[in-house]
Design a protein around this nucleic acid. Structure first.
Lengths: 118, 118
DNA sequence: TGGTTATATAACTGGAATGTAATATATAGT
DNA sequence: ACTATATATTACATTCCAGTTATATAACCA
């Protein structure tokens, strides 16, 4: 691998791809094999799907269990926790009424004399 | 713009970049101008920062207010709502004890006779 | 007015991501 | 043992993205 899909280890870049989000949407319903997932994507080849799954695996958003020649993929909590942890910080921010204070300041930003620190 | 950063409109790809996540981390503390943000990144040029801010703006993760030559950037709730909405679906999934059921099935996947639908 | 400061935009470049075809590997079934 | 099936990996092509330099735009200040 001279580079390619092996770098995207964090869950943020993993979910930035539309196809991978669709795969997660499929797996939330029930665990699926690679072939079953592949059948949902008429425009993608099997190796393409396998690569996306590798990215999701590295980000710990999915996990595999081997069953004969089949690999059954299902959601893995780990990666989702990373995402949740990150977003919860901003949820806290919006929860506090600092939110409306900023809105108030915004409304007056053009008329008010505002000191901007260099 | 023959391509570049103008395509990434959704909040997922916007937050997939480490630099942009750092910018959001700065803005959660307080609104900042482009120059102030730029000073936090010794390795980046001003146009580089402006482009990241353009991506964040299109994803509605930040908003601007003009104050003379300064543009004061602050967090915008819209984009975060999109992210929260997406992740809440998975939070629900993990909340249900389907989670532990899957774990149970995983443990037994090698020993059990499992029927996989083609 | 002229010069400086703050920011955005355009054009370009290198490297990373995404997709493919070909191939390897392992298992099932006959 | 032989063939078919399921999946991963490799090598490669193409597209996309983050960064740069150069330049445009606009407002401030002397």
């Amino acid at each position: 691998m001279q580079h390619g899909r092996g770098i995207a280890l964090n869950s943020f870049s993993a979910v930035s791809d539309e196809t991978r989000r669709t795969i997660l949407d499929l797996l939330i319903k029930k665990p699926l094999t690679v072939g079953q997932i592949n059948r949902h994507f008429s425009s993608l080849t099997q190796p393409g799907i396998s690569k996306h799954l590798a990215v999701l695996r590295k980000a710990r958003l999915v996990k595999v269990s081997v069953s004969a020649q089949n690999r059954v993929y299902s959601l893995d909590k780990e990666g989702f926790l990373e995402l949740e942890k990150w977003i919860s910080k901003y949820q806290e921010f919006w929860k506090s009424n600092l939110d409306s204070l900023v809105k108030y300041l915004d409304r007056n930003s053009k008329s008010e004399r505002k000191v901007i620190q260099k």
